[in-house]
Simulated assay, not measured.
Amino acid sequence: MINFPGSTKIGRRIPKEAFYRHLDLTASLKSKFVTDVDHIVVENSLTRESLRLAESSDVREILLLSIALKKQDFDGKIVEAIARQNQHKLLFRLVYEGQEQLAVYEGKLYRTAWKASGESDLTLRGDTMTAIWEDLVRQIALRPEIKMEEGESLCQQLKNQDVIDQLQKRIQKLDKAAWKEEQPKKRFALYTEMMELKKQLEELTHG
């Protein structure tokens, strides 16, 4: 459950047209904005003042936006455009017919799995706005199997996850190729490469 402090509650609906005026969108993306998005609500504004934090940081404000969708298979570039062209740090709660998905843009768009409305969970942790933002990104972007070393930066953790994704895709491709390969020597080479990648994957996920 997303249960941010009452002091952060905004609950202000914003017309889609307000985004059109402030975003640099291609004609195609603007059209998808119209067809994919129903309405947008600014749910919460997290600031040093609203959270009663003692220390200041580079991150000044984090907004939670709820975007009601007209279809579940929406174009993610809509969310990317909003995030990339906004001066605030943004969290997204995407809602469609009793389901919701959390999203955040940090170099690229990260999304959680779809869940029943109200079942998404975000917890505020940290004593500065920067620390809170990075932890919120971790909660949305990082999968549980990603190993986090003490002192490792958010950027490095996201890079590790990308490497893991690439390794998993390559392993699946090699596995299929090995089963189809009829020549023993080539099959062995594919199997050997696959086992080496599995070893790398194990080190990244379990140490």
Rank of each mutant, 00 (worst) to 15 (best):
V41D: 10
Q156P: 06
P5G: 03
W133I: 03
Y20I: 10
A27N: 13
L51E: 00
W114T: 02
L46M: 03
D58F: 09
K199Y: 05
I10A: 11
F33A: 15
E17D: 15
F4V: 06
E193A: 12
E61V: 03
L65G: 10
M194P: 07
Q183A: 15
K30T: 12
K198D: 03
G126M: 03
E17R: 11
K89H: 12
D38A: 13
S7V: 00
S7L: 03
A178H: 10
Q156V: 10
S56Y: 07
T123L: 04
Q85S: 13
E134M: 01
T130P: 04
K169I: 07
R93I: 06
Y110G: 01
L204P: 02
G207N: 06
I2C: 04
H206K: 11
F92K: 05
W133P: 03
I164C: 01
T112R: 03
E17N: 14
D38F: 11
L63V: 06
S7N: 05
W133N: 02
L174I: 09
F74Q: 07
L197G: 04
T205W: 00
L174P: 05
Q166K: 08
H39V: 14
K180Q: 15
S117E: 12
T35K: 14
F74W: 08
V163S: 02
Q101D: 00
V59Y: 04
W114V: 02
L63S: 08
L29F: 11
Q200Y: 03
L204S: 01
F92L: 09
D135I: 02
Q156A: 10
R125A: 09
I10G: 08
K89L: 06
F19I: 14
E196G: 08
K159T: 08
M129T: 04
A141E: 00
P144L: 03
P5L: 01
D38G: 14
T205P: 01
E193L: 11
D24R: 10
R52A: 05
R125L: 07
L91Q: 04
F33P: 15
Q183N: 15
A177G: 12
L64Y: 07
K30H: 13
K108E: 11
E150W: 12
V137E: 00
E17M: 11
V137D: 02
S120H: 00
S7D: 04
T47N: 02
P15R: 14
R84A: 12
A18V: 15
L197P: 03
M195L: 12
S120M: 05
G98S: 06
Q161K: 02
E80L: 10
D165N: 10
L90T: 08
E145R: 01
R138D: 07
R125V: 10
A68M: 11
T47Q: 00
Y110V: 05
R111G: 06
K176W: 10
T26V: 14
G118L: 06
D58R: 10
Q166H: 09
D165H: 08
Y105M: 09
L91K: 05
R48D: 05
A141C: 00
I62T: 03
Q87T: 15
E61L: 05
S50Y: 01
D127S: 09
N86Q: 12
I10F: 09
V137G: 01
N3H: 06
I67M: 14
H88N: 15
L190G: 13
H22T: 12
T8Y: 03
K71E: 08
M148C: 09
S28A: 13
